[in-house]
């Protein structure tokens, strides 16, 4: 589905990667190895070189916003541009948002909350819901559960698994090898700018 060839950017690559529908690939590696930079480069958020295709359609044939709607990056620290939660979900199907909120243990009243009062865990879950509700083809998750308590880690992992079952391809960064084992059906390692498949 997602095919990455010779991806390069400063201190990274060249990197090849094939992601299939239903894949949940754990991405591990030492701090500073460039895991976030790799996900950002795939989403085309930083200048980079390489041939990327999604369903055989080249990234260069799509404008950048269209590419990012289908290959969606969720940073470890989510950004908010309005005072309340709701405007961040503008244009998304209300019922999808509501369902997805439920799956991570939030009520739809959360849409009325003030962003500045959100806890780290609430921000992280809302950012995951926001991305999932866009129904992308690929999700690039940067430490999606780092700020969550065990119950909410379990809920978030369940949502990620459900997305993959729906046919999404997912890459998630984690420092937790147990989580890599538990949630991922593939394991990638990035060290010194080189990506390698870790065999089970």
């Amino acid at each position: 589905m997602l095919c990455v060839r010779q991806l390069k950017r400063l201190s990274l690559g060249p990197i090849d990667l094939d992601l299939q529908a239903g894949d949940i690939a754990a991405l591990t590696g030492p701090s500073g190895a460039g895991k976030s930079l790799l996900l950002r480069a795939i989403a085309d958020l930083d200048p980079n070189d390489g041939k990327l295709t999604l369903h055989n359609q080249a990234r260069t044939d799509m404008d950048a916003p269209a590419w990012r709607k289908r290959v969606m990056y969720v940073p470890a620290h989510a950004g908010w541009w309005a005072d309340t939660v709701e405007p961040h979900f503008e244009g998304l199907s209300r019922s999808t948002v509501k369902d997805t909120l439920h799956q991570v243990g939030l009520e739809s009243t959360a849409l009325g909350w003030q962003v500045q009062n959100l806890s780290t865990g609430e921000r992280q879950r809302l950012a995951l819901v926001r991305a999932v509700a866009h129904k992308p083809d690929v999700l690039l998750l940067d430490e999606p559960t780092s700020g969550l308590d065990p119950d909410n880690v379990a809920r978030a992992e369940k949502l990620i698994t459900a997305c993959a079952a729906d046919g999404l391809g997912i890459v998630f960064v984690t420092h937790d090898l147990d989580q890599a084992e538990r949630l991922g059906n593939r394991h990638l390692n990035l060290t010194d700018g080189r990506l390698a498949e870790v065999s089970a």
Binding site: L45, P65, R68, K69, M72, G79, W81, A131, H134
Partner: peptide, 22 residues
């Protein structure tokens, strides 16, 4: 200052025009 908020919008597929407007 608003780098994180702007990049959040760009990552969700907003155009630079929309993300920069405010």
């Amino acid at each position: 200052r608003e780098k994180i908020a702007i990049e959040a919008r760009l990552a969700l597929g907003h155009t630079r025009r929309d993300a920069f407007r405010p």
